[in-house]
Nucleic acid binder design. Structure first.
Length: 124
DNA sequence: GCCCTGACTGCTA
DNA sequence: TTAGCAGCCAGGG
């Protein structure tokens, strides 16, 4: 099968995050064997079209500090917080999420390989 | 192929 | 705890 772009890989990983759990940009980059590409992960989510964003749980990706750092014309950190709260995620008094409680463990390298070669994006 | 951009991160102060 | 800064890397022009 043809190689997917980095953006598509990011979206496929993001699709695997269970409702009520979160992960951070750098963790996704790590799973894609691209440690240090956290900014690119953020850019991939920023690149989602309005239609695509309806299928991808972008709100479950936050920064490593446990805060929402979304910067997008269509969505704000408040939107993201509201969406996560609706899924049962709790923010502390400082507006941060506790990864020990809501952090997604992520996928093993083998699982990632399988996912990238077999899974499809919702609009494909 | 070069240069710029960015929903990040780790280090230092 | 927070702020500033440099390094990071894939896409787009």
């Amino acid at each position: 099968m043809s190689e997917r772009s980095f953006f598509e890989k990011v979206w496929l990983i993001t699709l695997q995050i269970p409702r009520g759990q979160v992960t951070w940009y750098g963790r996704i980059a790590e799973m894609l064997e691209a440690p240090g590409a956290a900014r690119t992960v953020g850019w991939a989510l920023n690149a989602l079209s309005h239609e695509q964003a309806r299928h991808i749980p972008w709100q479950r990706v936050i920064n490593k500090a446990g805060r929402c750092s979304i910067r997008n014309a269509a969505h704000t950190p408040d939107d993201q917080q509201a969406r996560l709260k609706a899924e049962g995620v709790v923010f502390d008094e400082r507006g941060r999420i506790d990864f020990r409680r809501f952090g997604w463990p992520g996928l093993d390298p083998d699982e990632v390989r399988f996912l990238l070669s077999h899974a499809r994006l919702p609009w494909e």
